[in-house]
Design a protein around this nucleic acid. Structure first.
Lengths: 218, 218
DNA sequence: TCACCTCCCTAGCAAGTGCTTGGTAGCCTA
DNA sequence: TAGGCTACCAAGCACTTGCTAGGGAGGTGA
């Protein structure tokens, strides 16, 4: 796209009406899924006809693309800031978890879309960047965990790969039940989760740390 | 449906061809989602035409209904057996987690379908039973946790509601990455997860002396 | 031989899909 | 007052969707 509109071009990204439509589309994509949301659904929600959407966007794909790109740029910017602060493994993990729950709070629809649609969308060349983001995400968390094991902040017998998956999943899947504006703030949830993740739910009973979970303690 | 087939009825549930088709449909529903899987996709996978599916099934909905019903009957049967054994909170939790990962191993597609489609399907009267199952699931886990807090097996300051969500989510979302036949068995994964859930990933430092970490940073 | 069964095919319908085309009303600027 | 802009509508195209109607091949039992 050139810097000035050519006749027939869709509207510039700055338009406020465009932003409204994107937000509406995001809400529906998050609720019903990308494929299951029709352009007529989006248009109905906006009070216009489906064809009119194509004044603003080239395609339905472009809508979800813009939503995800903006969100991921923002989220990974935050992650990089956290890592750059060099807080040590434990504090870095705490900050990254908090930032993730904060993202669920502030960008609820976007997180839901990313979580549900990335696997499907990434197969299309247009969305190849989603794979890069996933790789960066993996790198971020596993290096925190590995460093923590090295320094002794985290248990030496930790399976970093599995722990990464558990953290990733638990954090993002919270988008299913976390409601912005509910009684629990994102901070509350992050604190409670970090409590479980770092120290576990069991009480200490003279049990040796580092043992596998199935030790007898009736 | 009556006990004998009427002309025009679909085939009885016992047919082996029918079971094959159900398994194929389950695989596709799990991979692409229920709405995004077309009857032509299923028929293609089976090497027949889409219309021929309607010899075996009344509708696409019936397919997913049968898949979910059979799976949930099986899963909740297992849960009830565990609870009936009265093992105490910690062992009950361990057994329930293990049973859940085992379900992911043995009924991978079904778990994926349940996890992704329940929220959408439950809005239709036919699938109202999904809400009952969710309620039973909630009851199962929160009573284990509450009992554990009462007996002192779990931390007194535990937020049972939140902890329930974390456990539920982490367990089921593993269906995304757990591959039956991979290097990790469902038991391995369950053990590792229980290790994190019960004792946390952090080494003991602030709480009690005796951990090997020396408090290097933050 | 015949009815009846399972399993599948051919052909197609009505509704819904993303998207396109040509046009219009109102606003702003020179 | 002409020209260009934004935002939309009306109509419809090519295709996909779940599902249906009617039929036929091959097997089974009486």
């Amino acid at each position: 796209m050139s810097t000035t509109n050519q006749p027939g071009d869709t509207v510039q990204a700055g338009s406020s009406r465009r932003a409204e439509l994107l937000a509406l589309a995001g809400r529906l994509f998050a609720e019903r899924g990308f494929k299951s949301t029709t352009v007529r659904d989006i248009a109905d929600a906006a009070g216009i006809l489906s064809g009119s959407l194509y004044h603003h966007f080239d395609s339905k794909e472009q809508m979800v693309d813009e939503i995800l790109t903006a969100f991921l740029d923002d989220l990974f910017g935050t992650y990089r800031e956290i890592v750059a602060q060099d807080l040590g493994p434990r504090k870095t993990l705490e900050a990254a978890v908090a930032a993730s729950f904060d993202a669920i709070h502030k960008h609820h629809d976007e997180v839901a879309i990313f979580q549900h649609e990335a696997k499907y969308l990434v197969q299309f060349p247009r969305f190849a960047y989603l794979a890069d983001r996933n790789a960066e995400f993996y790198q971020l968390w596993t290096s925190i965990l590995t460093e923590g094991v090295r320094t002794g902040a985290f248990r030496a017998d930790l399976d970093v790969e599995l722990t990464y998956r558990f953290i990733r999943d638990t954090v993002w899947v919270a988008v299913h039940w976390y409601k912005p504006g509910g009684s629990l703030t994102a901070e509350d949830v992050a604190d409670e989760y970090l409590g479980i993740l770092l120290d576990g739910i069991a009480t200490r009973r003279g049990k040796k740390p580092g043992g596998k979970g199935s030790g007898s303690s009736g």
